[in-house]
Simulated assay, not measured.
Amino acid sequence: MTTTSYTWAQRPIPLIRTPLSLNPTPTPDQFTFAATEMSNVHNCIIRAFNSIYLQAPHIPPSHHTPFINYMLAAYTGLKAHHEGEESFFFPELERITGEKDLMDANISQHADFHSGFEAFGKWLQELKNGREIYDGDKCVRLLDAFIGPLSSHLNDEISTILQLSKYGDLLDLRKLGKAEGDKVMGTLNKTTQLPVFFLNHDLTYENGLHASFPPIPGVVTWVLREGFARWNASWWQFATCGFDGRPRELPFLGQKS
């Protein structure tokens, strides 16, 4: 079964084809590298939200609690990613290039889906606190309110990074990307939040081109994915990949419960 044939690979947000797969080279320039790394992060987000969207109407009552925790992890992960961009990555790009409005379009796109995204997050907190009862149809409606502009943003940002090539060696995107990644990962709990990225990163995607993502020592990746992630294993049953990093079909795609 190829990666693109899984239910979650194309809807509601299609996976992004990475710049490196479109222009394969053993030594990609820093802009292709950075845009590809960002594509990988965005594809983790896409897989997570696709898995929520597709399974939400079919989750049986016995699985509501772990599914809510899984959704909270996805929400928190996306929120941390965008806060990391706005608090560090974007300002650093503007400082180094001297272009004060360089990333305004991207920040504007964040704003385009902010209200719908935050409404989803508020609902999740109400569920977590027992003030709401889980409703799969409501979940889909809340997602529909922001998933369109989110999809546009996740795709458009890749082009933005590639276009930074006009600044040449003035930028060190590998260094900036690593610094941002370290900051974001440092804000996420290793057992309740970070696994949403590791268990929605498909090691086989684009013929295994991204098997070494994220760019951290392999033993650290193994510990985070196959060690810490098992702490709340019931949460991650809804993810698109197993503890081995390989893709799998979603377990809850049947009749509404």
Score class of each variant (00 low, 15 high):
123 W>E: 01
154 L>G: 02
14 P>C: 09
175 K>T: 13
13 I>L: 15
133 I>L: 09
172 D>N: 15
22 L>F: 01
257 S>C: 12
128 K>R: 15
155 N>P: 07
47 R>N: 06
252 F>G: 03
155 N>I: 13
87 S>N: 13
182 D>E: 13
245 G>H: 11
147 I>D: 04
253 L>T: 14
26 P>K: 10
25 T>S: 08
163 Q>T: 07
48 A>S: 12
34 A>H: 01
93 L>C: 01
122 K>S: 15
168 G>P: 02
116 G>I: 11
184 V>F: 11
179 A>T: 10
193 Q>E: 12
184 V>T: 13
32 T>A: 05
150 L>V: 08
156 D>R: 11
226 E>C: 08
52 I>K: 02
137 D>E: 15
190 K>Y: 14
254 G>P: 03
64 H>R: 02
104 D>L: 14
66 P>S: 12
1 M>V: 10
134 Y>K: 04
225 R>D: 03
213 F>D: 00
90 F>M: 07
200 N>R: 02
96 I>N: 00
203 L>T: 06
193 Q>K: 01
95 R>Y: 03
102 L>P: 01
191 T>Q: 12
197 F>W: 02
170 L>W: 07
198 F>R: 05
223 V>I: 15
100 K>I: 11
53 Y>Q: 05
210 H>D: 02
127 L>G: 01
96 I>F: 05
245 G>P: 13
38 M>I: 11
162 L>T: 00
8 W>M: 05
170 L>V: 07
143 L>K: 02
101 D>I: 15
131 R>P: 02
8 W>Y: 08
1 M>Y: 12
188 L>W: 04
83 E>Y: 09
82 H>Q: 15
236 W>G: 04
43 N>G: 02
74 A>N: 04
256 K>A: 11
21 S>R: 13
249 E>W: 14
133 I>S: 14
48 A>C: 06
81 H>W: 14
131 R>N: 08
64 H>L: 01
83 E>H: 14
97 T>L: 00
246 R>A: 11
31 F>Q: 01
46 I>W: 00
163 Q>E: 10
141 R>I: 10
43 N>E: 04
54 L>F: 06
256 K>C: 08
121 G>L: 04
9 A>H: 03
41 V>D: 05
91 P>W: 00
72 L>Q: 07
182 D>M: 11
156 D>I: 07
90 F>P: 07
167 Y>R: 09
20 L>M: 12
75 Y>L: 06
103 M>S: 13
13 I>Y: 07
113 F>W: 08
253 L>M: 14
171 L>A: 12
91 P>H: 03
73 A>R: 01
98 G>I: 09
215 P>T: 09
250 L>N: 06
22 L>I: 03
207 N>Y: 02
180 E>T: 13
168 G>N: 00
70 Y>F: 14
25 T>D: 04
179 A>Q: 10
133 I>C: 14
